[in-house]
Amino acid sequence: SSCPGKSSWPHLVGVGGSVAKAIIERQNPNVKAVILEEGTPVTKDFRCNRVRIWVNKRGLVVSPPRIG
């Protein structure tokens, strides 16, 4: 992607959502990480300053967080 800084975090799958949020925002200060339960409807727009963290009912990351 053409967004500045780190853009994906595949190693965070299985980690707690709040831990993942802290790591992502520390590694790329340009983004705001948002924790969402899988299945939550979201907009389809692409934004360089957003990372969606998809978690299951136990709050664990279920897919690699990435910019968008």
Rank of each mutant, 00 (worst) to 15 (best):
S1K: 14
S1R: 08
S1H: 05
S1P: 05
S2F: 15
S2I: 15
S2V: 12
S2R: 11
C3K: 14
C3M: 13
C3W: 08
C3N: 15
C3H: 15
C3S: 14
P4I: 12
P4T: 12
G5L: 14
G5M: 15
G5I: 14
G5P: 15
G5H: 08
G5T: 15
K6L: 15
K6H: 15
S7G: 15
S7D: 14
S7P: 07
S8D: 14
S8I: 15
S8A: 15
W9P: 01
W9E: 04
W9V: 03
W9A: 03
W9L: 06
P10K: 06
P10D: 07
P10W: 04
H11F: 13
H11V: 05
H11C: 13
L12Y: 03
L12F: 05
L12N: 01
L12M: 08
V13L: 07
V13E: 01
V13Y: 00
V13I: 09
V13W: 02
V13M: 05
G14E: 00
G14A: 02
G14V: 00
V15T: 09
V15R: 10
V15Q: 14
V15P: 01
G16F: 10
G16D: 14
G16R: 10
G16I: 10
G17V: 03
G17M: 01
G17W: 08
G17P: 02
G17C: 04
V19E: 15
V19M: 14
V19S: 09
A20P: 01
A20G: 00
A20W: 00
A20Y: 02
A20R: 02
A20C: 04
A20T: 02
K21E: 00
K21T: 04
A22L: 12
A22S: 13
A22I: 10
A22Y: 08
A22N: 13
I23K: 05
I23M: 10
I23A: 06
I23T: 05
I24D: 02
I24W: 01
I24F: 00
I24P: 02
I24Q: 00
I24T: 04
E25W: 01
E25D: 00
E25C: 02
E25I: 04
E25K: 00
R26S: 09
R26W: 05
R26Y: 08
R26K: 14
Q27K: 08
Q27A: 09
Q27T: 06
Q27D: 15
N28R: 06
N28K: 05
N28M: 09
N28V: 09
N28H: 05
P29Q: 09
P29F: 01
P29E: 08
N30D: 13
N30E: 13
N30T: 12
N30C: 13
N30V: 07
N30I: 07
V31H: 03
V31F: 12
V31L: 14
V31K: 03
V31M: 09
K32V: 11
K32L: 06
K32E: 12
K32A: 05
A33Y: 04
A33C: 15
A33D: 04
V34K: 08
V34W: 05
V34Q: 07
V34I: 14
I35V: 08
L36V: 13
L36A: 05
L36H: 06
L36M: 09
L36T: 08
E37H: 07
E37Y: 06
E37Q: 14
E37W: 05
E37P: 09
E38H: 09
G39D: 06
G39W: 00
G39P: 00
T40I: 07
T40M: 07
T40C: 07
T40Y: 07
T40S: 09
T40D: 06
P41L: 09
P41F: 08
P41E: 12
P41K: 13
P41N: 09
V42H: 11
V42F: 05
V42P: 05
V42L: 06
V42R: 05
T43K: 12
K44H: 11
D45Q: 09
D45S: 08
D45R: 05
D45W: 05
D45N: 10
F46L: 09
R47N: 10
R47L: 09
R47D: 15
R47A: 15
R47Y: 14
C48Q: 13
C48T: 14
C48H: 11
C48G: 11
C48D: 13
N49Y: 04
N49R: 05
N49C: 05
R50F: 09
R50N: 15
R50K: 13
R50I: 15
R50A: 13
V51T: 03
V51F: 00
V51Y: 03
V51L: 03
R52K: 08
R52G: 07
R52I: 15
R52Y: 08
R52D: 08
I53C: 03
I53F: 03
W54Y: 07
W54C: 06
W54K: 02
W54G: 01
V55P: 01
V55Q: 01
V55K: 00
V55A: 01
V55Y: 00
N56H: 00
N56R: 01
N56A: 03
K57N: 11
K57Q: 11
K57P: 06
K57C: 05
R58C: 10
R58D: 13
G59Q: 08
G59L: 00
G59D: 01
L60N: 06
L60W: 06
L60C: 08
V61Y: 01
V61G: 03
V61L: 02
V61F: 01
V61I: 04
V62L: 07
V62S: 10
V62R: 03
V62T: 12
S63R: 12
S63M: 08
P64V: 11
P64C: 06
P65T: 03
P65G: 05
P65D: 02
R66Q: 11
R66H: 15
I67Y: 07
I67G: 05
I67P: 04
I67H: 03
I67D: 06
G68Q: 05
G68N: 08
G68D: 12
G68M: 07
G68V: 09
